[in-house]
């Protein structure tokens, strides 16, 4: 399996006049689980969005490399699996229809077996033909993991991964984190201690808040 690396180079984010974080320099490598920690409103999700290329930082660069080759922003979605509470899938489609559309839009053939395996893992296989609007918030959260894993991403970015999940759902997530971290890079942004206990390195967003550059 090729090396996947992610480098945050002097990443600074300012919303209006409010400094979210300043000059984050950090390197992530595959085969490990990294945590992004901080209290509510500290900027964990903002950093997750910057890493995933959804928003651009005010200053600095985010460099994704696969086998030492830089990944261009237009291709990043092929390497990235993203789960967050603010991710919304299409309510008017069933779980399976969602997955079929996503695979086709990605330009992949729909992998029926993989979908079946993931839906089973997250305990929603029996409801795969139900419209998503009939799903509970916990089931939707489980479905987001299936969405994020279908294309076998090299970087799995999980923002508050266990929100809305019951114990069984949380256990499914932890199993995925352990499995994916063997070959891929897993980043967990959370303030749940149990979520962060799976992380070997933790980036504390609070450390990068001081305007005087103290970290």
């Amino acid at each position: 399996m090729s090396d996947y690396k992610l480098k945050l180079d002097n990443v600074t984010m300012i919303f209006g006049r409010r400094l979210i974080f300043k000059e984050i320099n950090f390197e992530f490598e595959n085969g490990k689980v990294y945590g992004i920690a901080g209290h509510n409103g500290s900027g964990k999700s903002t950093l997750a969005k910057i890493i995933s290329g959804i928003i651009a930082p005010t200053r600095g660069k985010v460099i994704h490399t696969n086998s030492s080759k830089k990944i261009i922003p237009e291709k990043l979605h092929d390497y990235l699996g993203f789960v967050s509470p603010y991710l919304v899938l299409y309510d008017e489609f069933t779980a399976e229809e969602n997955l079929i559309h996503f695979s086709k839009i990605r330009g992949h053939k729909y992998d029926h077996e993989k979908a079946e395996h993931l839906l089973n893992h997250f305990g929603i296989y029996d409801r795969r033909n139900d419209l998503l609007k009939g799903y509970s918030s916990g089931m939707k959260q489980r479905m987001k993991f299936v969405f994020a894993l279908m294309h076998s991403p090299r970087l799995l970015l999980l923002d508050e991964p266990t929100s809305n999940l019951d114990n069984e759902g949380k256990e499914s997530v932890y199993q995925i984190i352990e499995k994916e971290s063997k070959d891929n890079l897993v980043i967990v942004a959370s303030n749940e201690e149990t979520d962060l206990s799976y992380c070997s390195n933790i980036l504390e967003v609070e450390m990068f808040k001081k305007d005087n550059g103290t970290k």
Binding site: E74, Y86, L87, L89, D91, F102, I105, R106
Partner: peptide, 20 residues
């Protein structure tokens, strides 16, 4: 309005979204 813009950003390049 449905909040699915993020989903689209995560599955397709901007040129694909514009063309579609």
């Amino acid at each position: 309005e449905r909040g699915t813009t993020l989903t689209l950003q995560l599955i397709a390049a901007p040129s694909t979204v514009f063309s579609g």
